[in-house]
Write a protein that binds this DNA or RNA. Structure first.
Length: 424
RNA sequence: GGAGAGGUGGCCGAGCGGCUUAAGGCGCACGCCUGGAAAGCGUGUUGGGGGCAACCCCUCCAGGGUUCGAAUCCCUGUCUCUCCGCCA
């Protein structure tokens, strides 16, 4: 959520930035500023009435103590009408505040200066590309065939037991999952991230804190009975650790990570690129999260990008990095880098990681602050990144590292999975 | 699921409907004292909002209610703890 202060002081900059998302927020922002002014005027008036009411009550208290009952009754008469008035003003305040909140929550984050104004994924800027993918020349088998051939993943069984998009991993396929998770967690540990195993369900406050609610309500599985949400990413429980927290400047940066399964309804995307591991309702992911000083966050974003690069290089996969354009960026992000790996059989790029700086957008909702040099509480910046999401990595590993007999496991991964090839 | 107890500042811990605009202690910060320190003394120490400012308002788990006045009384919710039941 954008801060009121920012809208008040930098209205034009905010509007320009939001224009990169192809949103004309002029009407909304001006309405916010109008409501804000109204709210403040009402508050001033309310404060005056409350001050008078408090003062009279104190007088009555004093008189009662001295036993001057008649005089107390006289003062009491003066309080008539004050209550109705405070009630009215409070209602006006609440109404203005609620309206304000609805509008504020509807505004996405402002893209940072480097972000281009494009509209579609085609307008994303490629900022890095690894060694060229090998031209398979149509010989490469798709991962769903390889998975079946080597009995690694059973999609039909998942469909029977749960539904489409919930596969079973078997034998070496299961070991590969477990090995990849360990590989990613060890690398995060080496980079100084503290590991957490968070809950896989969260309450509505947490969903709101990281921005899934109310914007993406329909994308999460909801347990109606207990009003809990299955996490769509570890970002939600991990970042919400910092909800309602005031940190010391010396505590920054906070670096944490965690492995969780992720649950996504993917409503509205049926039939689109859903073959094999391309799009699942449940998948595994290791997430890295940092909470930083506002001046450090973009340098931190670069180190997180480097971390993910290191992982993909360890897996010897061809990949590229995109800086998302305004039109393709998530609601809460100020800048996002997407990582895509090459699918040798599908002959297209698959997104495997998204690394974002949210600046104060989440911190404002989370009320996560730190005490700055002057002892004042200021909002931190939050960042996160997938490091990494498993299914498409598995797809790319199978497709890119296949040979005549089976699949070669990249050297760096061998100690974690416990074998150096599948098949053959 | 049943029964009971309880949520007060950074922490501990008092709190009779009005001298509580939250006692006292610990911790922390600053100052005095000291050759330096400890002790001692003094001052400050939740967060949010309004006002150019003096200052004012809100904040004792959350939301309602009673009252001129609520940390205190009533209702609802929530979380924690103890016991019983069930259970990996």
């Amino acid at each position: 959520m954008l801060t009121l202060q920012c809208l008040r002081e930098e209205r034009d900059r905010v509007l320009d930035a939001l224009a990169k998302r192809h949103i004309d927020a002029t009407a909304t922002v001006d309405q916010v500023l109008d409501l804000d002014a109204k709210r403040r005027a009402t508050q001033t008036e309310l404060d005056q009435v409350l001050a008078e009411s408090n003062s009279l009550s104190r007088q009555i208290g004093g008189l009662m103590r001295e036993g001057k009952k008649a005089e107390a009754e006289e003062v009491k008469a003066k309080t008539a009408g004050l209550k109705a008035k405070t009630g009215e003003l409070k209602d006006a305040m609440d109404a203005a505040e609620q309206e304000l909140q609805v509008l504020l929550v509807s505004l996405p984050n402002t893209p940072c200066g480097l972000v281009a104004a494009g509209k579609t994924p085609d307008d994303n800027e490629e900022v890095f590309r690894s060694a060229e993918p090998q031209a398979a020349g149509g010989a490469a088998k798709p991962h769903w065939d390889l998975a079946k051939e080597h009995d690694l993943i059973d999609f039909d069984l998942g469909a029977k037991v749960t539904g489409a998009g919930f596969p079973f991993y078997k034998g070496q396929g299961a070991k590969l999952q477990r090995g990849l998770i360990r590989f990613f967690l060890e690398k995060a540990d080496d980079a100084g991230y503290t590991e957490f195993i968070p809950p896989h369900m969260v309450n509505a406050d947490s969903g709101y804190g990281t921005g899934q609610l109310p914007d993406k309500e329909g994308q999460m599985y909801h347990m109606q009975e207990d009003n809990l949400y299955m996490i769509p990413t570890a970002e939600v429980p991990l970042t919400n650790i910092y909800r309602d927290v005031v940190l010391q400047a010396a505590d920054l940066p906070q670096k944490i990570c965690g492995y969780t399964p992720c649950f996504r309804r993917e409503a509205g995307s049926y039939g689109k690129d859903v073959r094999g591991l391309n799009r699942l309702h449940q998948f595994d992911k290791v997430e890295i999260v940092q909470v930083t000083h506002p001046e450090e966050s973009y340098a931190t974003l670069d180190t997180m990008v480097d971390h993910v690069k290191g992982l993909l290089e360890g897996l010897e996969l061809p990949y590229r990095i995109l800086r998302l354009c305004g039109g393709d960026m998530g609601f809460t992000s100020a800048m996002t880098y997407d990582f895509e790996v090459w699918s040798a059989a599908q002959e297209r790029w698959l997104e495997v990681s998204s690394v974002s700086n949210f600046e104060t957008f989440q911190a404002n909702r989370l009320k996560c602050r730190f005490k700055d040099e002057d002892g004042k509480n200021k909002f931190v910046h939050t960042l996160n990144g997938s490091a990494l999401a498993l299914p498409r990595i598995v797809a790319a590993l199978l497709e890119n590292h296949q040979d005549d007999q089976g699949i070669v496991i990249p050297k760096a991964l061998v100690p974690f999975v416990g074998f150096d090839r599948i098949g053959g």
